[in-house]
Design a protein around this nucleic acid. Structure first.
Lengths: 128, 128
DNA sequence: GAATCATAAGTACATCTGTACTTGAGTCAA
DNA sequence: TTGACTCAAGTACAGATGTACTTATGATTC
């Protein structure tokens, strides 16, 4: 269904950083990531190039530096990715995943309250 | 942290079928899958072999047929897989994933009720 | 303006993935 | 006992992935 090739785990990680920064040069993504894990500047370059080739990012030259920005909305990528995972890991039923997350995540009081509200809002929407 | 190599998307799918069947020959997994998607018997064989090599499945000869069963508990694989996804897609925060799932999944009344109970149970456990 | 630095762009490459073909040995049915 | 069938086991192979080196070029600093 998605007219784009899917993203690998590593590519997803890089895409997320671009989403967070809204707009980012290779250097910016590299800096954001290098904090967290050991990776080479040119590896980031390669990932960004591939993300653009696959149609997930736009590029624009800023002077002689390339600046990347989202082309496909994060929501869309997230939906596709999660849906694929649910298919493979739970035969398409997302309930077990929610259950797993809720049971395993050690949410704070505040987060639990958020969840409760989220669910309350659901009921209003659906049939009613 | 996991002392095993991670699983690819395709491998996960095959692993899930084995979990569901608890114990399964190549033929059994093949049958379960062939219903759903077009795949060759020997492709299933290859996946199962790799899953065993990676330490996720046990094999046992039943006569001259191999029978596979889980070696790592599904819960564990699910935890590792989901945790990896959350890291890459949401920088480690699982709340957005729960939100996404709840908002996107079109749960039934019954499921929503289940969710509510799940959350109620949480509060009891956590601090208190 | 020569040396240094930053970046782009191309190339490299081992491993992993998805998918399957081939070969050979055991099993069954006629 | 020969063909049809099943399965294990080995091999194949293109494409994806993770990671980085190299080369060239524009920019910056003495």
């Amino acid at each position: 269904m998605p007219p784009r090739p899917g993203l690998s785990k590593g590519e997803l990680e890089i895409a997320r950083v671009v989403w967070e920064l809204k707009q980012a040069t290779v250097r910016a993504v590299y800096n954001a990531l290098a904090d967290v894990r050991d990776i080479d500047f040119t590896t980031v370059q390669t990932y960004l190039r591939r993300l653009e080739e696959k149609g997930y990012l736009n590029v624009r030259m800023e002077g002689r530096v390339r600046s990347y920005s989202p082309k496909v909305r994060p929501r869309t990528v997230i939906r596709e990715t999660v849906s694929d995972l649910v298919d493979r890991l739970f035969a398409g039923d997302s309930m077990p995943l929610v259950r797993h997350l809720v049971e395993d995540s050690r949410f704070t009081e505040g987060e639990i309250e958020q969840l409760r509200q989220l669910i309350d809002r659901l009921e209003g929407d659906s049939d009613e």
